[in-house]
């Protein structure tokens, strides 16, 4: 994620120290990205554009079982990204910095509760991949809002997302509504827009009701 933010900031003409020092810059390096979602696709394709020497994408399932959009995988393949299906990182090797990645091969076992086939490590199948930089693109956790906002009473779910009323999107704090990724976990722009619109409708009702109450009192 920092990798993508840095790249976007550079694109906007900002100064990014970690990028200029080369830490978040893929230029001339052998890059390995771990993960099979849309964020992973964004990382591999950003690396290609930063002129990486080679770009590989490791994913523990196969192409058919990828969570990411097929269109984005096709775009990445066209751009020269090499996919290493059915593989999972085991450990890093190198002095001072990563030089190689040890990888286990995977086979798909019985389907799990969600109906997807469970990846299992093939014993003794490990091999090495050369890597100057490894990027993990495996999703992220929501921030701890009750703590950050200094609002201990704000209710969150066990995943750390903000709890809202399904109909009104109001949180347990009166007049405070929530929408988008902070309610759903990492999701999509179109769902964020949908939530924002729904929240707006509920907020309007809320505001009209306080007005009514006030005018009754007066």
């Amino acid at each position: 994620m920092e990798f993508l933010t840095a790249s976007n900031k550079k694109g906007l003409g900002d100064k990014v120290e970690l990028f200029d020092k080369g830490i978040l810059n893929a230029e001339g390096k052998d890059i390995v990205v771990i993960g099979g979602g849309d964020t992973a696709m964004d990382c591999v394709r950003t690396s290609v554009r930063q002129k990486a020497k080679s770009v590989k994408c490791l994913y523990r399932r196969d192409k058919e079982n990828m969570p990411g959009s097929a269109r984005e995988v096709a775009n990445a393949e066209e751009e020269g990204v090499e996919f290493v299906w059915l593989s999972s990182p085991k450990k890093f090797k190198g002095t001072n910095k990563v030089e190689n990645l040890i990888v286990d091969q995977i086979q798909l076992g019985e389907p799990d509760d969600s109906g997807r086939r469970r990846p299992q490590i093939k014993q003794g199948s490990e091999f090495e991949i050369k890597a100057d930089m490894v990027i993990k693109a495996l999703g992220f956790d929501p921030e701890d809002l009750p703590y950050l906002f200094d609002a201990k009473e704000l209710q969150v779910t066990k995943w750390g997302t903000v709890k809202t009323d399904f109909d009104t999107m109001e949180t347990n704090l009166k007049g405070v509504f929530a929408a988008g990724d902070i309610v759903r976990g990492a999701s999509l722009v179109v769902w964020a827009i949908k939530d924002g619109r729904d929240a707006a409708v509920a907020m309007k009702t809320y505001l009209e009701n306080i007005k009514l109450k006030k005018s009754k009192v007066a």
């Binding site: 964020a192 939530d195 924002g196 929240a199």
Partner: peptide
């Protein structure tokens, strides 16, 4: 109305209101 966060969710809510 105060909106915290200018992501797509916040911007959509802000515009509608």
């Amino acid at each position: 109305v105060g909106v915290i966060g200018a992501g797509p969710a916040g911007l959509a809510a802000a515009e509608q209101l």
